[in-house]
Write a protein that binds this DNA or RNA. Structure first.
Lengths: 241, 241
DNA sequence: GTCATCATTCACGCTTCACTGAAGGGTGGT
DNA sequence: ACCACCCTTCAGTGAAGCGTGAATGATGAC
């Protein structure tokens, strides 16, 4: 019988093609952005990523040929978006593995800001990323196909964090946004809900802000309680300041 | 501020390196085999995959440098194994995405055997793959680090399929094995448990064997009941023969 | 109509990577 | 001691991928 390595096998060929698309920093980051934060134009992407327009365009053309992104022309703008919300799962699996891998053999000491810091008025860093993934995993938050987020059916995870969904006011500002964390390459929670969650953690004395900066410190109380509220959150030693 | 694409960022660099390792048919298949079926020697791998020994060795050296596999020399054999069981999650996420992608735009018509066929005395194909992932997801089956499988705490999923865990006799043969499906690139269930599950499905009239072959046909009864037992199982039209 | 902006395409040079075939160490069997 | 086997390493060749810079199309503002 023929060997296992037969690139004519549709599934194998498809997996390889997918991995090849992800094996470039520009394409990977663009996909992460499109998946976590919704549609962007080419110029937005090339501006945010800091690469030239032709370079960005070439990579987007590849992604489009691979069926990972779609493009819609409106006037002289080309709006790109992730073709399927499922790609977020793949990206998250990769980022989580890489993250765990780094924890095993860290290449640089973990900075306090890696654990938690504020992004405007919500929590970012490892804390913010874990809040996001926990809320999504427990069904309290539901990512929509266009990058937006809506409340899910079971909001018990929110209640445990000390937030009452009924009090949220999304009239003047988006309820929740997926803000891609630049360090961890995973989305963290922004918007009204992000601010409320951080407020509840501060009020509960689980974390406290550092004076005159964006740093967040996990208190002893937080070290004791957060792992139960946020499964998967592993606090490096010394993170309580 | 610097752009998002900075390969000095440890997480980004790690994700890219990981994707690059997976972007080759030999490396990907080797990882799938090591992850699903446990340790293999170099010659076993090069024999099964059908590639030359130097080629296989070079790819394994790369995987070792990337920290994805470990090697242990015993005599003149080099036994390779997956460095972490977590890599299975990444591979499964990739294969699942590719699989869904192919369902959207199939490159060849689905053959009946793609849905279900026997592998010795257990179910393979899409049916077998779905059985495996369902049992693992529901905690009835627990993959161990070395590729072996053990019963989990909650075996209700097995009971629903018509198998009583107390009747399983694992003295003469392994209880359960993860047998990598060559078509779907995901593990399916083998061993005593695999045989029992297939027996229960046949006894319940959900599937029936085709005369004189390894094909399995999903009956009308199966079409009605299997999707509830195995979430995520999508039967292509015409699969009931 | 003219200009500015945005997106895409082309040609070119550069780098990186993977495969082959042969040779080199090590180990176990006889 | 010899041979058979397994694994690894080496040099050489060929192909593929990537980035730059300039040119081309298309659209909207004035």
């Amino acid at each position: 019988m023929a060997g296992w390595v037969d690139t004519r096998e549709p599934v194998l060929a498809s997996v390889i093609a997918l991995a090849r698309e992800l094996a470039d920093p520009v394409r990977l980051t663009a996909l992460q952005l499109l998946s976590a934060e919704g549609p962007h134009t080419l110029s937005q992407l090339s501006d945010v990523l800091g690469v030239s327009a032709p370079r960005m365009g070439n990579h987007l053309a590849r992604l489009r040929a691979a069926g990972l992104v779609t493009v819609q022309r409106t006037g002289r703008h080309a709006v790109y978006r992730a073709a399927s919300a499922d790609i977020g799962d793949v990206l998250a699996a990769l980022a989580r593995y890489a993250h765990a891998d780094l924890r095993i053999r860290p290449r640089r000491p973990a900075a306090p800001g890696d654990v938690a810091h504020t992004c405007y008025d919500h929590a970012a860093g490892l804390l913010g990323v874990t809040i996001f993934s926990t809320l999504v995993a427990r069904g309290a938050l539901r990512p929509l196909d266009d990058g937006e987020l809506a409340l899910g059916a079971d909001t018990s995870a929110l209640a445990e964090l000390g937030v009452d969904p009924a009090t949220l006011d999304a009239r003047r500002r988006k309820l929740a946004t997926a803000c891609l964390d630049r360090v961890h390459r995973l989305p963290h929670l922004g918007g009204v809900l992000g601010a409320e969650v951080l407020g509840a953690l501060l009020a509960g004395g689980l974390v406290e802000g550092q004076e005159g900066g964006r740093g967040l410190t996990v208190t002893a109380r937080g070290v004791a309680r957060l792992p139960a509220l946020l499964p998967g959150l592993t606090l490096p030693p010394g993170s309580t300041g």
